[in-house]
């Protein structure tokens, strides 16, 4: 309802609704569902209609999806077993460091390389960070180290091939992550337009496509009737 209000629309104005994300099956008014993997991919393909690798760093999961020039997925990977290296990891670390999320990017940019954190587990990383603080390391180096950790989790998921596009909430607020991935992988990594809304945009493209198909079927039906 809020979205309709913001757009100045009524429910009847919306021809089709596609739900995505972890809660997709709970959207009672959706006509169909699509995974966020497909939606992020479709959204990115709209802007980059060529062979691309899509990296999505979300709140609870990371994805690396490969698309061919037609926009079809050729493979995808999601983070394994735990949510290390996702937005939730940064959120937890910001809380532990008592630094607002909005200040992480600025602080990290003051550091040249950042500290290297070895732990995979979020809780163990917090312990390691405490140890670094006690060891006298600078806050900005530690924060850049956290972003380095996110980049490492991405780079161990899959090889980056073709043009590399990154989306999701983490890079929307912390574009430095794209730069770190780019430096470490030795490839150019571009941030997609509206990275945080890319999944919703992809879902909208699916909804629009279903409308087009419906119109085509309606048209064919009327021709047949003639």
């Amino acid at each position: 309802m809020e979205a309709l209000k913001l757009a100045g629309l009524q429910r009847e104005d919306v021809g089709s609704v596609v739900a995505t994300g972890f809660g997709r099956r709970s959207v009672s008014f959706a006509g169909s569902i699509k995974t966020e993997i497909s939606c992020h991919s479709t959204g990115c393909h709209y802007y980059y209609p060529e062979e691309i690798t899509v990296i999505d760093i979300g709140g609870q999961d990371n994805k690396v999806v490969k698309l061919n020039a037609s926009g079809r997925k050729t493979s995808f990977k999601m983070n394994r077993k735990c949510a290390a290296g996702t937005g939730a990891f940064l959120e937890e670390m910001a809380y532990k460091l008592d630094v607002p999320m909005s200040e992480l990017e600025g602080l990290a940019r003051k550091s040249a390389t950042g500290t290297e954190l070895g732990s995979f587990c979020t809780v163990f990383t917090a312990t390691e960070v405490l140890d670094r603080i006690r060891g006298g390391e600078q806050l900005e180096d530690i924060i850049r180290g956290l972003f380095n950790s996110v980049a490492k989790r991405i780079l161990e998921m899959d090889r980056l091939t073709g043009r590399v596009i990154i989306s999701g909430g983490v890079v929307a607020h912390n574009p430095i992550v794209a730069e770190i991935i780019s430096e470490r992988a030795g490839v150019n990594v571009e941030i997609a337009p509206h990275p945080q809304e890319m999944g919703a945009f992809g879902a909208a493209l699916y909804a629009a496509e279903s409308q087009t198909i419906q119109h085509q079927e309606d048209n064919q039906l009327s021709v047949a009737r003639r």
Binding site: F22, T35, E36, I37, D61, R72, K73, F76, M78
Partner: peptide, 14 residues
């Protein structure tokens, strides 16, 4: 549960 479901669903979409 949810990660597995999503992985399978996305795979089928692929």
């Amino acid at each position: 549960e949810e990660t597995t479901r999503t992985n399978i669903e996305a795979f089928i979409e692929q």
